[in-house]
């Protein structure tokens, strides 16, 4: 699943550590999310969407039947 975390983070001039602190996760998790190595849970997706002030659909791009 692709996401726009890196794009929105750079637009808002937020560092990975600041975002990690805001979402109560480690910086490594943010890096993995941005690289597409890890898919966020619904809770984390919700928190991230709230942080950026967008909807989950706008932040995460679902590309069909992944991991099904």
């Amino acid at each position: 699943m692709k996401n726009r975390i890196q794009e929105l983070r750079k637009v808002r001039k937020v560092t990975q550590q600041e975002l990690a602190d805001a979402l109560s996760v480690t910086r490594q998790t943010i890096i993995s999310l941005e690289n597409g190595k890890y898919n966020a849970s619904l809770t984390l997706a919700h928190k991230a969407a709230q942080f950026f002030g967008v909807s989950i659909e706008e932040l995460f791009i679902f590309e069909g039947e992944e991991n099904l």
Partner: peptide, 11 residues
């Protein structure tokens, strides 16, 4: 706390 509750670490 963050390290132990981090969902990626748990996964």
């Amino acid at each position: 706390y963050i390290k132990s509750t981090d969902e990626r670490n748990i996964a």
